[in-house]
Design a protein around this nucleic acid. Structure first.
Length: 108
DNA sequence: ACGTTGACCTATA
DNA sequence: GTATAGGCCAACG
């Protein structure tokens, strides 16, 4: 396992419940800005990991749940988020701007 | 080995 | 304001 994925999972696990972040924010925090697609690929591998990775707290820059189909059921991601108090409307995170959790500013 | 694809983002028109 | 283009780099066929 390369350090990149290890760091991605570590950051994702640090996301507080009820908060969300974006792939690009994680990519910037890891210093691989522009390679945000790799973060998405890392999420794909997160299912195989033994540790729990709350991938449902990671959405794209628009707050759109683009990765929901990669879960067991397309509605599972939305249910997980709503279970944490995050309201989802039309596959978008409501109040995404205020719920956004940026590792750059939060972890520093 | 090469071309295509992808849970994205930024920039230009 | 939406639309299209380019860049990114690893995995898959």
């Amino acid at each position: 396992m390369s350090d990149f994925y290890q760091n991605v999972f570590e950051v994702v696990r640090l996301i507080p419940p009820g908060r969300v972040t974006s792939y690009g924010a994680i990519a910037r925090y890891l210093g691989t800005a522009g390679s945000s697609r790799m973060v998405g690929w890392a999420m794909n591998l997160s299912h195989h990991q033994s540790i729990y990775v709350p991938a449902h707290r990671v959405v794209n820059r628009n707050g759109l749940l683009t990765g929901k189909i990669h879960f067991g059921s397309p509605v599972q991601m939305q249910e997980l988020l709503e279970n944490e108090g995050v309201r989802i409307e039309d596959d978008c995170v409501v109040e995404f701007n205020s719920l956004f959790w940026d590792p750059m500013t939060e972890l520093r």
